[in-house]
Design a protein around this nucleic acid. Structure first.
Length: 205
DNA sequence: AGTAGGATAATCT
DNA sequence: GATTATCCTACTG
């Protein structure tokens, strides 16, 4: 169950991604109930993973112990937050994609500027911004209570309510069903697949 | 409601 | 020099 977070994060990324749904991610005065996540595996296992070609200065944290934060800068203006999982030495992580702000909503509104509440953390860069996260959080742990981010169990999600499918926006390995979300949850993001997705028909199905 | 294009910089080839 | 795990705005119907 989600009550044993260290054990969950030490396991395979897809399991961790699913298990993190419904948990509460608290950082810098804002708490988000996670509604959507994606799993990224390691070297040689997942072409869409930053760690696919082995460790680099940016991705060394992905090879570290589970529970570590990997926050990367993307598209020249956005930060996206991942929680490292799997055994130390193997790279894998869970991208925190979307959720509902359940605490500190005023602070989240200030950080996000003009946006309806539904969109405060609906998308990975929005979520990171709502939580006030940037690269300085990289390398801290969500398990030891020392870093800016703490993950605590929330109301459990019915296993039957969890859906999975292709990850959003990835340019390769667009068919692997490593995106997880809570069925019917309005705080799940609704973005399209990468325009550059290869190896798949342009229209799924 | 849905689509399209631009902004903008670290990282890797 | 190409690419990118995105978001926002503006446009069309």
């Amino acid at each position: 169950m989600t009550s044993d977070l260290p054990r969950l994060l030490a396991g395979p990324a897809p399991d961790a991604a699913r298990g993190l749904l419904g948990t509460l991610v608290r950082a810098n005065g804002v708490t988000v109930r996670l509604a959507e996540s994606e799993a990224y595996l390691g070297t040689g296992e997942d072409p869409a993973s930053h760690a696919h070609r082995g460790p680099t200065p940016r991705t060394t944290v992905m090879f570290g112990p589970p529970g570590g934060l990997y926050v990367y800068f993307s598209y020249g203006m956005h930060w996206c937050a991942n929680v490292v999982c799997g055994p130390e030495g193997m790279a894998s992580a869970v991208l925190l994609r979307a959720g509902e702000v359940v605490e500190g909503i005023r602070l989240a509104r200030e950080r996000r500027g003009a946006a309806v509440d539904r969109d405060l953390a609906r998308g990975p860069a929005r979520l990171a911004q709502a939580l006030g996260l940037d690269g300085t959080a990289t390398g801290t742990s969500v398990l030891d209570g020392q870093g800016p981010v703490v993950v605590v169990p929330g109301e459990p999600v019915e296993p039957g309510q969890v859906r999975s499918g292709p990850r959003v926006g990835v340019a390769t390995a667009a068919d692997l069903p490593w995106r997880f979300w809570i069925a019917g949850d309005p705080f799940v993001s609704a973005y399209r697949r990468s325009a550059r997705a290869v190896g798949s028909p342009t229209v799924p199905r």
